[in-house]
């Protein structure tokens, strides 16, 4: 399987990338390529131009920024997983990165590419939503803006990111309490059939779900119940409130709803001790 023909351009800088993206009708950003190239090989995606941003030098880093941690968008899953800083101050991010795809994928795939792809079955988007992460985006003419994770994911493979914008940095708050990311799948290599991220916050927990709708989803009902003093078992019964999980070869929507309740309870038990 071979992609349809396309033009290839290597961006030297973010501004250069934005300029290149603006110069073609259906250009796509190539970071690691592990979301895009499979679609191109099946010819479901046939961009006319790929703008390779992987050589932009300063987009791979993990560093402290006050009570936040800043992660360059081109930081590979492998490096996120092995970041001592993240392991210490935002361990859910490092742990989740270590469970994306497989080792080969983690050696190439990037945190920014994964988030920008906006696949509701992706693990990292859910963790970002639970953490209330912020995404820095660069646009034409040197403009930049910041979007909250909760607002970034707009629909199935749809993010608040224009065709000529580049996601440059992910900022996550440091966490000190309990956390859990539970990924339920048939095979280790599969995307999450259902995933649950839980992070302790002010004695309660923020909870988000993977693959339970068209975007990573905040489990608002669970959070509300917890805030009202419910125990994990009681709160988890509301896990699928507002969810619209898919039915596919891996499992039915009905089953996903039930699994989400079990996983939320287990995640809360891990998170809240």
């Amino acid at each position: 399987m071979i992609p349809a023909a396309f033009e290839y351009a290597r961006a030297e800088s973010i501004d250069h990338a934005i300029e290149l993206l603006g110069g073609a009708d259906d250009a796509k950003i190539l970071a690691g390529g592990h979301s895009l190239l499979p679609l191109m090989k099946t010819r479901l995606a046939q961009p006319s131009l790929l703008v390779d941003i992987s050589r932009i030098g300063d987009l791979s880093y993990v560093r402290e920024d006050g009570d936040m941690v800043a992660i360059g968008a081109l930081t590979r899953h492998h490096d996120v997983a092995n970041s001592e800083l993240l392991q210490q101050v935002a361990p859910i991010v490092a742990d989740t990165a270590s469970r994306i795809g497989d080792p080969q994928v983690r050696h190439v795939g990037t945190i920014g590419g994964s988030i920008a792809h906006a696949d509701p079955a992706g693990d990292m988007g859910t963790v970002m939503v639970a953490l209330g992460a912020q995404f820095a985006i660069s646009a034409a003419a040197g403009a930049t803006r910041t979007v909250a994770a909760g607002d970034f994911f707009q629909g199935l493979f749809q993010a608040d990111l224009a065709a000529n914008e580049v996601l440059t940095e992910i900022r996550v708050p440091k966490t000190s309490g309990g956390w859990s990311y539970l990924k339920f799948n048939r095979r280790a290599i599969d995307w999450a059939m259902v995933g649950v991220a839980a992070v302790q916050q002010n004695g309660s927990a923020a909870v988000a779900l993977t693959n339970m709708g068209e975007t990573p989803l905040r489990a608002a009902g669970v959070e509300e119940a917890l805030a009202g003093g419910a125990d994990p078992a009681t709160a988890s019964a509301r896990a699928d409130e507002g969810a619209a999980p898919p039915s596919d070869a891996f499992g039915s929507a009905e089953y996903r709803r039930e699994v989400s309740k079990v996983l939320v309870r287990r995640a809360l038990e891990e998170t809240l001790g």
């Binding site: 048939r186 095979r187 280790a188 290599i189 599969d190 596919d248 070869a249």
Partner: peptide, 28 residues
């Protein structure tokens, strides 16, 4: 435990690649 070639109602193979058809890994 894992493998099954599933067809949709129109007769299209849903389990159409190794990402959909569950050949187990060393973990399973």
């Amino acid at each position: 435990l894992y493998e099954e070639a599933l067809y949709d109602e129109s007769g299209n193979l849903m389990s159409s690649s190794m990402t959909q058809y569950l050949v187990p890994t060393a973990v399973e």
